[in-house]
């Protein structure tokens, strides 16, 4: 039947076309906003009805890194993120090893406690600690910002390392014991080295989370201790389109880079943040 044979081909072509168009529209939806952001960050002039900026400049970036309070917020961000990464690692890694490796009474409760910050709305955490810091006159201090970020980072730090610890094969420990290594040696020579990728992923993730954190910082920081996202929000509010776009790009690029590196280590459910 020649009719059916020829009828199939246009359908195939139609389907392929449909898929292509759908993928293109979807790509446009995902990339569009980011492209606009990038364009604004280098736009000298971009007025309706022009499709694209009519002239370009890099001076918004120069601005962004020379204006004193922006520079200061960048320094704050780096300072806070470094402290948060170190402190969270020190706290989360031993806890994760304890949870992932040992059976003890109350293990389930402890595991659950560490995920409490993920169960309540992010803003609830924010208002909660903001009011505590306010009462304790900590609002606006670096300590407040660092502690706030640590609350957000701790569940992820614990989760990342715990899941790596649980993936360790118990026979490998046993093999080391059989070879004559005492438990302490097994820990330092066999267990810890196997966790290195997870520890790096944990540190990278926490650093990125702290750099990007906005909600909690907005609630507990002062202008002196504000981080880059808060500064960017201020610039947006004042209508400095190009400057806030440039700041956004400055924040976005390292985020994307680190995400690409971490993508191999992380599961989807670890991305949930307000």
């Amino acid at each position: 039947m020649g009719g059916t044979v020829t009828a199939v081909r246009p359908m195939r072509v139609g389907l392929a076309l449909l898929r292509g168009v759908f993928l293109a529209l979807f790509a446009g939806f995902i990339f569009g906003p980011l492209i606009v952001l990038a364009l604004w960050s280098v736009a000298q002039q971009w007025f309706w009805p022009n499709l694209l900026p009519t002239s370009f400049t890099t001076r918004w970036f120069e601005w962004a890194i020379t204006v004193p309070n922006v520079l200061r917020s960048l320094q704050n961000s780096l300072f806070v993120a470094t402290l948060v990464t170190i402190a969270t690692s020190i706290i989360a890694v031993p806890a994760a090893i304890a949870i992932g490796r040992y059976e003890f009474r109350g293990r389930t409760v402890v595991r659950w406690l560490f995920s409490v910050p993920l169960l309540v709305p992010y803003i609830s955490l924010g208002i909660g600690i903001a009011s505590v810091f306010y009462a304790a006159r900590l609002t606006g201090t670096y300590a407040a910002v660092v502690l706030a970020h640590m609350i957000a980072a701790l569940p992820f730090g614990v989760l990342i390392v715990t899941s790596a610890v649980e993936e360790l094969v118990p026979e490998v420990d046993e093999a080391a014991l059989a070879c004559g290594a005492a438990p302490t040696a097994v820990f330092w020579k066999i267990i810890l080295p196997q966790l290195v990728p997870a520890l790096l992923a944990q540190a990278g993730y926490v650093f990125m989370l702290s750099m990007d954190e906005f909600t909690l910082t907005l609630l507990v920081a002062s202008p002196e201790t504000a981080t880059l996202p808060v500064q960017m929000y201020g610039a947006m509010g004042e209508g400095y389109l190009q400057v806030s776009s440039a700041l956004a790009i400055l924040l976005l690029l390292p985020s994307l880079l680190l995400s690409a590196v971490l993508a191999r280590f992380l599961r989807t459910d670890l991305h949930v943040t307000g």
């Binding site: 490998v172 046993e174 070879c179």
Partner: peptide
């Protein structure tokens, strides 16, 4: 003692 496991249990790193 020396021990050989079904899963080999080599030190992956």
């Amino acid at each position: 003692l020396g021990m050989v496991f079904q899963t080999y249990a080599l030190f992956p790193h």
